[in-house]
């Protein structure tokens, strides 16, 4: 076995893979969140749809996104491998185990939390990513006044296989910018007005919160980034930014749509 193969097949190496993929996924969350802020804009999804197009069709981002999918798969796969190894390390369990006395619940249930998240990701991608790429969705046509960008007129165009997913041109005569986009925003808006779907999202974000409260800090510990002066910062980021703020903002999106429609 080569040195590197040996390194990554060791227990520490596998953990390093978990850590690096996990941290990469964390950085993605920030990007994803910032992008999704477009949903809060009151523009009938014009910004959001443009953003969706950018994310799926700009080559560097596409490369990164495949890295991302790989990370998710590797993260889940190695979690499975490690869990099976860990089960084998204690074939006979304790009759009584007072786990809460010595460790936080989240740290002991990363597998369950991760499984919830994986299921969520599959649903989430199936509903949006898959549909966006493959489903016969209607289009939204935005007519944006060049004088006043706040003045946007929107109309729906039916599905047309020949139409570009996204087009953008300026009609100088009309003084308008015409944007035609496959209307992912509508799909999102519709989904987020379904209560059970919103509930699933919120629940998943709770799982994300717990997963990151432990996971973020744990990733640094695994890499060995442990420094008296910086550990408090990592803990703060792990708990308050990744554990609370980010999941909260993600959860706010479906809730926002749900409330908007009531």
């Amino acid at each position: 076995m080569s040195n590197f193969a040996q390194t990554f097949s060791s227990s520490l190496g596998k953990k390093l893979i978990m850590s690096l993929t996990g941290l990469f996924l964390c950085t993605f969350l920030i990007v994803h969140l910032v992008g999704n802020f477009q949903l809060f804009k009151d523009d009938n999804g014009q910004a959001f749809n443009s953003y969706a197009y950018l994310m799926t069709h700009f080559t560097p981002i596409k490369v990164v996104s495949y890295l991302l999918y790989t990370s998710i798969i590797v993260h889940a796969l190695y979690a499975l491998i490690l869990t099976m190894g860990n089960r084998k390390a204690r074939p006979v369990g304790y009759a009584v185990q007072a786990g809460n006395a010595n460790s936080p619940w989240t740290s002991r249930n990363m597998g369950i939390l991760g499984t919830i998240l994986l299921i969520f990701i599959v649903i989430h991608m199936g509903d949006f990513w898959w549909k966006y790429h493959n489903a016969e969705l209607p289009y939204a046509k935005y007519e944006i006044s060049l004088d006043n960008p706040q003045d946007i007129k929107v109309s729906e165009l039916p599905w047309d296989a020949k139409r570009l997913i996204h087009s953008d041109y300026v009609d100088t005569q009309a003084g308008k910018e015409i944007v035609v986009s496959k209307d992912l925003y509508k799909v999102v808006a519709k989904a987020f007005t379904t209560p059970w779907y919103v509930a699933l999202y919120v629940l998943s974000m709770v799982a994300l919160s717990f997963h990151l409260i432990h996971g973020f800090r744990s990733a640094f510990q695994t890499i060995g980034w442990d420094h008296k002066k910086y550990v408090p910062l990592i803990r703060f980021l792990g708990v308050w930014i990744f554990g609370v703020l980010i999941p909260l903002l993600f959860a706010a999106m479906p809730i926002f749509f749900l409330l908007k429609n009531y």
Partner: peptide, 18 residues
């Protein structure tokens, strides 16, 4: 030491702090 630890069949660390 890590190689021997792995060989002995201990589980891996998930940083629970227990």
């Amino acid at each position: 030491m890590v190689a021997q630890m792995d060989e002995e069949g201990f589980g891996s660390c998930t940083n629970t702090g227990a």
